[in-house]
């Protein structure tokens, strides 16, 4: 098996999904709309919250929410690709690809292309709107590199997680099994106020949720005041590594099922 065929399979799979994605509004609208709603509703509606005592974030509330929505859009780009994989399995289309592709891991790799495309498209849209709404990024070039690298890793981990679920269950009914854990991981974190201002059970959940670190590091980059960079990257890389194993197990399960 040559390396070239891995790449060409991945590209072929990726091209088809990206093509389908942009031709079908039912697929790209929800993935874009939800982060956009969150951004408008909270950056616009909740901004007064940053005057609560103990809320210190220099870049302002818009940037605070942007940090979250960026992460959300990246993760959703990956998760919604999991939906597409499940749909392909349900329709039997994946079977055709599995028969045709010499190295099947290339199929999974190929699905990352639409995941990344989705996330990039959504993040670009949200960034434009955020800038228009007065987003101020205080961080420099290196900070931004750190921010978007984190987003990229989150996107890959989410896509691998989603594909692992999709290839195990192989039905559209698997949607909630992908969406709910992703939702919980994202929202049981300091979403609207800093960690110190959280109370009750969400505070407890955010303490053990690794996404809290990622979110805090991302916001640090935006404010030009990097915090918890190493732990955040360590956690994200660990998540990516775990989800690679998860997705590989999913592929084995799909192969066993034929």
């Amino acid at each position: 098996m040559s390396r070239a065929s891995f790449g060409s399979v991945a590209l072929a799979v990726g091209w088809r999904s990206v093509h389908n994605y942009f031709r079908n509004p039912a697929m790209f609208v929800p993935g874009l709309m939800f982060p956009l709603f969150f951004f408008t509703a909270f950056a616009g509606g909740l901004s007064r919250v940053d005057s609560v005592p103990g809320f210190d974030y220099e870049a302002g509330y818009t940037a605070f929410v942007y940090g979250f929505v960026l992460l959300q859009a990246s993760a959703f780009g990956g998760i919604f690709t999991g939906f597409a994989i499940a749909r392909d399995f349900e329709s039997g289309f994946s079977r055709r690809m599995m028969l045709a592709a010499p190295r099947r891991s290339a199929i999974v790799a190929g699905y990352w292309i639409p995941a990344l495309t989705r996330a990039a498209f959504n993040v670009a849209m949200i960034t434009v709107i955020a800038l228009a709404a007065g987003l101020e990024i205080l961080g420099g070039g290196l900070d931004l590199l750190g921010l978007y690298t984190l987003a990229l890793l989150v996107n890959a981990a989410a896509m691998l997680f989603g594909s692992g679920v999709a290839m195990r269950l192989r039905t559209m009914q698997a949607g909630p099994a992908m969406q709910v854990p992703a939702f919980l991981a994202l929202f049981l974190a300091p979403v609207w106020v800093p960690y110190d201002l959280l109370v009750g059970w969400v505070h407890a959940a955010a303490t053990v949720n690794p996404i809290t670190l990622v979110l805090e590091a991302g916001r640090g980059f935006i404010a030009g005041d990097p915090v918890k960079v190493l732990p955040a990257f360590a956690v994200t890389l660990a998540l990516a590594a775990l989800t690679v194993l998860w997705a590989r197990g999913g592929l084995r399960s799909a192969e066993r099922a034929g």
Partner: peptide
């Protein structure tokens, strides 16, 4: 409701 009320409780201090 559960996430909001725990996550945004500090807003009551406004």
């Amino acid at each position: 409701l559960s996430i909001n009320s725990s996550g945004l409780d500090s807003a009551t201090e406004l």
